[in-house]
Simulated assay, not measured.
Amino acid sequence: MANLRLPPLPTIRDIIRLYGLRAERQLSQNFLLDLKLTDKIVRQAGKLAGAHVCEVGPGPGGITRSILNQGAVSLTVVEKDRRFLPSLQMLSEAAEERLKVIHGDILKFNMEEAFPTDLKRDWQEDPPGFHIIGNLPFNVSTPLIIRWLEALSNHSGPFIFGRTRMLLTFQKEVAERLVAPVKDPQRSRLSIMAQHLCEVKHCFTIPGAAFVPKPDVDVSVVHFTPLKEPLIDLPFKLVEKVVRSVFHFRRKYCRRGVESLFPLERPDLTDEVFQKTDIDPMRRPMTLTMEEFNLICHAYNNICLRIPGIQEYNYRLH
């Protein structure tokens, strides 16, 4: 570990001043200047000594330094905003080739080409020595985690290496949705989609005052470990459609959401779902357990297999 620690460097505050950097509010950017806090965040990823890491949106490099100081053998950072590239390049030189800086969009970044193939593990084995870490801008965090959850279900993208673990930040309200249990008012589509594929842990919350500029909300750190087997063993898009439909009418009975999956002239199909699952259609969406969502998804899938074209039905277009 000792020889992997970084040499003395300017503080993040000095880096920001040196390169004339500022957070863009319209991009939901916020900087963490306290390296003790970035160290605390990175420790939640688990043992990084000897591991390979991909960091999303490093900005001026606070979390980047902490990852390197934890002993990561290689770190690739993917930064879309070119303003941060000079400061990250300076850090790369100090890290003696352990840090590779990529200017680009994480959604277009080819993970398989960027990291060694010998990292790959069978899905049923322990997670690989590869981690995703990111202090995400609020405006991309939810769509990005949905994209990654879909990649996880297909064992593609970051998950070609196996059950890749992720450590990500979200605004507190989103983090609460990700971990919300049955009957919790925050239980939502995001809760089901994350929890049926991952063990999701809310690590801790960072006060907004710790960031520059101070956001209007607090920020939470969330850790994801993919499950060996999904709790709903069906294609991601089908599960997401069912769950989204049910929670679209979250203040109504769950029957209303299931109804929206079928044409108005086919109430018999809605009846069939509840008859097959033995679920009370007057239940509220947030009271449904994961097993009950599993039953609803399978009942819907069986109907889709029996009636061609029913899965393409979209009530908004009718």
Score class of each variant (00 low, 15 high):
A194Q: 05
F211L: 11
L152C: 15
Q29T: 14
Y19E: 08
S92P: 00
K172T: 14
V219C: 09
D233H: 07
N314Y: 05
M166N: 05
L238K: 13
R177H: 06
F170N: 03
Q311M: 12
N301W: 10
D218H: 12
L4D: 02
P10G: 09
H155L: 04
V179F: 04
Y253R: 09
S245E: 02
L178Y: 00
L231Q: 09
A299V: 06
P58A: 13
L152D: 06
T117S: 13
F84D: 01
V140F: 03
S74P: 01
D268V: 06
V56Q: 00
K120N: 04
P207W: 11
D233I: 02
L231A: 10
H52W: 12
L21Y: 06
D14W: 03
R284T: 00
R98P: 00
F130E: 11
C203F: 00
R251Q: 11
T277V: 09
R251H: 08
G162A: 13
Q124N: 15
I160A: 09
E312V: 07
V56N: 00
E113D: 13
S87E: 01
S28R: 13
F159Y: 08
E55M: 09
L234A: 14
P137G: 12
S156T: 15
P181H: 10
C54W: 03
A299I: 02
S156Q: 11
I303R: 02
R255M: 07
Q89D: 10
E96T: 11
L21A: 14
V200Y: 03
P10F: 06
E173I: 12
V217L: 11
G20T: 02
R250S: 09
V56A: 01
A49V: 03
W148V: 02
T142R: 07
Q275I: 07
F84S: 01
I303W: 00
Y253W: 05
I132W: 07
L317S: 15
I307S: 06
E240P: 01
